[in-house]
Nucleic acid binder design. Structure first.
Length: 492
RNA sequence: CGGGAGGUAGUUCAGCCCGGUAGAAUACCUGGUUUGGGACCAGGGGGUCGCAGGUUCGAAUCCUGUCCUCCCGACCA
């Protein structure tokens, strides 16, 4: 009967799985590492996608679609990119099956149908896209190209986790081409800001903007900018990346343009993406032991109304009042569901919608009708209030806005309390072990030191924040001079 | 990919050691009573025991292989 949720304290990983599965977001599938996104989870993704899509278009981008398959020869063109992804590529080698002569009703791969050139299932689309851009670009007048695609990609990960790391996932990838370095850098930064705005204003997820260290950089990029979020277990999660690709892909694919001085130049590039991983971030950042807590601005369902009645007569009277409320809410663009299903009792419904993270619940019974009131309950704090029926639409409208703000503030307070500056190695280790979160520490800037720190503590440099002030110091591990603090954390 | 655990009804699980043809709770269906924080009574339907081989008169149970999931580790643009 009860869908028990493992508590965070008991087993954080299991708690996360419980929320995703029992909250109805996704299910495991028959395919290793691949999940089924269920309607409720997909509705959440659609809401996120729609907002982002509008933000991309408002910043001048257009959508396009490129093939799922990348010929191996194209894939290997940009060496670092190819190397970085090679270990996790699914590869198509054949194009036909045939019936098994030795096993009736079974199929085997037809050995005579081997492809002359293998096709890589895209783990990211730079290669196929830059091979296409080559044909689109002749002159500076063809630039910039500002294109995004919504797609699925495949990365054959060793160990997968629902939403956080699946072998196939949905994402968007923007790929832009520019005539100058300055413009490309500006684009890289602009799109990171779009992501940060989306995370903070829609997902209620505070993020830190910064640049990756060399060893965490995207394969093939000159610089990788990122937004980093903090989960409730003190681990960091990269919520989005925006890459300045320099002329690496232009050179690999011979993409040149004629400038105003009639000279050939290589094109400057960016790419940027966020994925269904954001749903994992959303779940882990906000939810509690009773289930999901979804921010109103992207929740698939913002308000649920539960009637409490004895007999059809009462139910009819309640429904009449509820219908007026529904019209009022819908007129304000608020999504609402009236759950008058007779199979489940109110208590069951309360628990169910709390598990699914519906931001606001209204409950109305005969007692309320007499007094012309209704009960308003908010998911994030579990607070309940009784309000007059004729004000409930406005109250809910405001409450949804309040919840959105409160969720952000709560997450931000937690995040801010978990950015700890440290000045010694002992302190560094102690904070990571006992407190978690981000640790702001001096680092000598070398990959060797970063690796050594990772080996000893599992913590990596999440980013060098854009707003980090310059400050002379000494590296916590090597003792060498440092120009400023960087943020370390254990990460997903 | 290494170590550990697991896969039996929609779900959670028992049965397996010691082989004899599958059970509980819950969910579901019907009827009734109920309904302010996961209701109750009565009746009913539902499972090729992950899949494929093997051993055996007989396999959920024993053996082999394989797929999938979870946890820890390695990996993670």
């Amino acid at each position: 009967m009860a869908k028990e949720i493992t508590s965070r304290a008991q087993d954080y990983s299991q708690w996360y799985n419980d929320l995703v599965l029992k909250g109805g977001l996704a299910d495991y599938s028959a395919v290793r590492g691949c999940m089924v996104i269920k309607p409720y989870g997909f509705a959440l993704w659609e809401n996120m996608r729609d907002v982002l899509d509008k933000m991309f278009k408002d910043t001048g981008h257009q959508n396009a679609y490129f093939p799922l398959f990348v010929p191996k020869s194209l894939f290997e063109a940009e060496e670092k990119n190819a190397e970085g992804f090679a270990k996790e590529c699914a590869v198509v080698t054949h194009y036909r099956l045939k019936t098994d002569p030795n096993n009736k009703g079974k199929l085997i791969v037809d050995p005579e149908a081997r492809l002359e050139e293998e096709l890589v299932v895209r783990p990211t689309s730079e290669a196929i896209i830059w091979n296409t851009y080559k044909d689109w670009i002749q002159s500076y007048r063809d630039l910039p190209i500002l294109v995004n695609q919504w797609a699925n990609v495949v990365r054959w990960e060793m160990r997968t986790r629902l939403f956080l790391r699946t072998a196939e996932f949905l994402w968007q990838e923007g790929h832009t081409a520019h005539s100058t370095m300055e413009e490309a850098v500006e684009e890289t930064r602009k799109m990171l800001d779009v992501y940060a705005t989306f995370a903070e204003e829609y997902m209620a997820l505070p993020v830190i903007r910064g640049v990756k260290s060399e060893s965490e950089r995207f394969a093939g990029a000159v610089d990788t900018y990122c937004i980093e979020a903090l989960m409730q277990d003190g681990k960091a999660l990269q919520a989005g990346t925006s890459h300045f690709l320099g002329q690496n892909f232009a050179k690999a694919f011979e993409v040149k343009f004629l400038n105003k001085e009639n000279k050939q130049e290589y094109v400057w590039a960016t790419s940027w993406g966020v994925s269904t991983r954001l749903i994992g971030a959303l779940v882990m950042a906000h939810s509690d032991d009773d289930g999901l807590i979804l921010p109103p601005r992207i929740a698939p369902l913002q308000v649920v109304i539960v009637p409490i009645y004895k007999g059809d007569e009462q139910k009819a009277a309640i429904t009449e009042k509820v219908n007026a409320i529904i019209s009022g809410l819908k007129a304000k663009g608020i999504s609402v569901k009236y759950d008058d299903n007779d199979n489940a009792r109110p208590g069951w419904k309360f628990n169910e919608y709390e598990m699914k993270g519906v931001p606001v619940r209204l409950a109305i019974g005969a007692r309320d009708l007499e007094n012309n009131v209704i009960e308003v309950a908010r998911r994030d704090t579990k607070e309940k209030n009784t309000v007059a029926l004729d004000t409930v639409v406005d109250v809910v409208d405001q409450l949804l806005k309040d919840i959105q703000v409160a969720m952000f503030e709560k997450a931000k307070a937690y995040r801010d309390a978990h950015i700890t500056p440290v000045n010694s190695w002992d302190e560094f280790v102690k904070v990571l072990n006992e407190k978690g979160g981000f640790v702001a520490a001096h680092w000598d800037g070398t990959p060797e030191t970063e690796t050594a720190i990772k080996e000893q503590t599992k913590a990596t440099i999440r980013c060098i924040p854009f707003d980090q002030p310059e400050e002379a110091g000494t590296c916590i591990l090597s003792g060498k001079p440092s120009k400023g603090r960087v943020l370390f954390a254990q990460a997903y």
